[in-house]
Design a protein around this nucleic acid. Structure first.
Lengths: 189, 189
DNA sequence: CCGGAATGGAACGTCAAAGTTCCATCTTGG
DNA sequence: CCAAGATGGAACTTTGACGTTCCATTCCGG
């Protein structure tokens, strides 16, 4: 694959994730325009809408997965690793909002498929945190993971709407995740 | 408006919220079938899709708002009132998932419109809780409200997917909201 | 500089959803 | 019981996205 093709393909996938994150009913022409390519070109790379969605999911999953791996979730104290992971998530907020914006997206593609992080390092991190007595052992690791996604998603949304400064997303999400919404009762860190 | 018309209208609005919550691209025939009415009847009540969506939002907002008011958020200790509100939210989970499932829904309808709870009692409750030293005063009330919606939504979703027992949603969401995901360090209740 | 690759635009056919009309049937209040 | 209202089904037109084809133009590596 030539350099041009590779570049065009990435541009389309990136634009698709971004546009579809905000409106999953976005038309193909709209996506093509966002990617600065003609509608014809889009069809040349992805025969139909279904293929585009499928490839965009795959690509976004890879981007997110790589971002998480770079955060080295299995190294260091759980809370610190956790902070790195959250930061990584926020950095790829667009892809995350695309992947989790549509509840049906991740279900409808293959049974028990785990598009995000095969062998999910985040789940491992959560379990490790519980084993070391840092995370609440009474909450299911799956629930905790859902909460993490949910709050990161909400943080990105608030930032997108201007209700929260970009740089404040990570700290706000982290504070909420660690303490909930109640006043912090001077805990032994 | 006769009794029959009123009943049919409610059935359509309820079905629309339920179906659209799971798939916002659902067709009108699908909604009509879910409401047990003919497609013709649906068009008789709502001229076009736009009108149906608009009225469904309005109706769902009223249902949620009434549910919150019944929870008496301004009475009693903030934490207890808060528990009642969360329970009320989960009870109308279908409507909530419809209202917040699409980020564009609440933005695109009227500028600065606050379809949910005009004069929002939930915000008042949050502010009261902060004033009384129960809720974290460093988090924005708007952020806290978003977190509440987000976690209730996630809880309903997990329940819908069978990952969480119906009756456990409220307690799990509450525990997470109050403590976050970290181990609870024997706090003075 | 050149030839193939890549792109964009225009035009066309296809198709499903949306919206409309008409009429037969059923329900219901008086 | 009866008439007005409410409903459902069938058939039709319209609309817009989708997918395809063809060709002119631009880009880029050799």
């Amino acid at each position: 694959m030539s350099g041009a093709r590779s570049r065009t393909r990435r541009a389309i996938l990136s634009a698709a994730a971004s546009v579809l994150a905000r409106d999953r009913t976005a038309t193909l022409p709209a996506i093509a325009e966002a990617a600065n390519v003609g509608r014809t070109t889009l069809h040349r790379y992805f025969p139909d809408r279904e293929a585009l969605i499928r490839e965009t999911i795959k690509d976004s999953a890879e981007v997110v997965s790589r971002s998480v791996q770079d955060a080295a979730p299995h190294e260091g104290p759980p809370l610190e690793a956790f902070r790195r992971v959250i930061t990584a998530f926020v950095d790829v907020g667009d892809r995350l909002m695309f992947l989790f914006g549509d509840p049906r997206l991740l279900e409808s593609r293959g049974p028990t498929s785990q598009p995000i992080a095969p062998g999910d390092p985040v789940l491992d991190l959560i379990r490790r945190g519980q084993a070391e007595g840092v995370f609440d052992p009474e909450l299911s690791p799956f629930w905790i993971r859902s909460v993490v996604w949910s709050l990161v998603y909400t943080g990105c949304e608030e930032a997108a709407n201007g209700n929260l400064p970009r740089h404040g997303v990570v700290s706000t999400v982290l504070r909420t995740l660690e303490n909930g919404i109640t006043r912090t009762p001077a805990r032994s860190s």
